[in-house]
């Protein structure tokens, strides 16, 4: 499993914006780079990130080879109700990882 760092508030007031910052370890091999043997290395990237919270995908990003290695994404979503926030990365070669953070809304 890839290492991921997620920074999200544990508690938030209803209606306020919460900043979510995410970092995941991934080479994001572009499919355009030659390896040591001179052959082009096959593409191996994360293609999608999604944040699911309170019954809905509130933020989604489609990534391409132009996303830097170890993708970083920060966004803001409105605190609505207490519950889990699911952050999922999907990509080439069956890559899939989900991190869950519990949000308490006061």
């Amino acid at each position: 499993m890839a290492r991921a760092l997620v920074n999200a508030p544990k508690t938030a007031k209803a209606g306020e914006m919460m900043e979510i910052k995410t970092l995941i370890s991934h080479v994001m091999e572009t499919g355009f780079r030659p390896g040591m043997d001179g052959r082009i290395k096959p593409r191996d990237i994360i293609t999608e990130f999604a944040c699911e919270y309170d019954g809905e995908v509130v933020f989604r990003a489609a990534l391409h080879p132009a996303t830097s290695a170890n993708p970083y994404l920060a966004f803001e979503t409105r605190a609505t109700r207490s519950g889990p926030m699911k952050l999922t990365w999907r990509g080439d070669n069956g890559f899939e990882q989900t991190e869950t953070v519990d949000i308490t809304v006061e």
Partner: peptide
Amino acid sequence: DVQNPGML
């Protein structure tokens, strides 16, 4: 720290 890939 959450922007620094060295922390991974």
